[in-house]
Design a protein around this nucleic acid. Structure first.
Lengths: 127, 127
DNA sequence: GGGAGCACATGAGCTA
DNA sequence: TAGCTCATGTGCTCCC
């Protein structure tokens, strides 16, 4: 083997290696960027959840509430559970009131025009 | 300087290095464990939020809903906003119904005993 | 000095 | 193969 051939091989191998490394670097950086966008999205959502928390939850006794990711998520779970219960209670209360109203209207229907709506409330149920 | 002194210094330096490395390794592993616990906690909360989503949100048209962290958090924000609106609507509806009932009771109060409660509903407001 | 929270880069795994 | 999500380890920064 001549020395020249060896050098050529070396050059070729070197160039090949450089190309591979370049490609790898490109892919790595692209991957990093995508991953960062994903992280930012998740963090933004968590932060948004934090802004949706009621005062009663964000206010900690003594001073400023420490709103790290864990507590934001924990309180959000708690809040959703409470709101679900509140919605059920309201729904029940509305049912009772409508029932009473219907009975009253029925009693008065003999000689008096209906003066209130008797429609049954049907609201969204985002529970 | 004697050779013995040099060796002793080497040994001492070596031992010192080992101790430092050991300490560093310990701290690193401890930190890793703590960090893993923190991550697990956050992930568990997100997963819990996922289970609290209503069917209408988890069911995607066409097939299985892809519930990755981002979508869980996005839908949770959406859900909380909807529930807050629903709660306001219910509150308003209850107010209206109670108002109507009070008026009716007043009209009939001349010769008829009150047959319904006139108490005003005051429910929790976890918004 | 040590614990807690966070952002980051990176490799592994899944799906079109 | 390319793109996306995820878990992990690690360094940095506060705060005790």
């Amino acid at each position: 083997m001549s020395q020249e051939t060896g050098d050529e091989d070396d050059f070729a191998a070197q160039a090949n290696l450089q190309a591979i490394m370049e490609k790898r670097r490109r892919r790595r950086e692209s991957h990093n960027a995508v991953e960062r966008r994903r992280r930012d999205n998740i963090n933004d959502r968590i932060q948004e959840l934090g802004t949706l928390l009621p005062e009663s939850m964000t206010a900690e006794e003594g001073g400023v509430a420490r709103l790290n990711k864990g507590t934001i998520l924990r309180k959000s779970v708690e809040q959703i559970r409470m709101m679900q219960k509140d919605l059920r209670d309201y729904q029940q209360r509305v049912r009772e009131l409508e029932e009473t109203l219907n009975q009253l209207n029925h009693q008065n229907s003999s000689r008096r025009a209906r003066n209130t709506t008797t429609t049954t409330t049907r609201m969204q149920q985002h529970v």
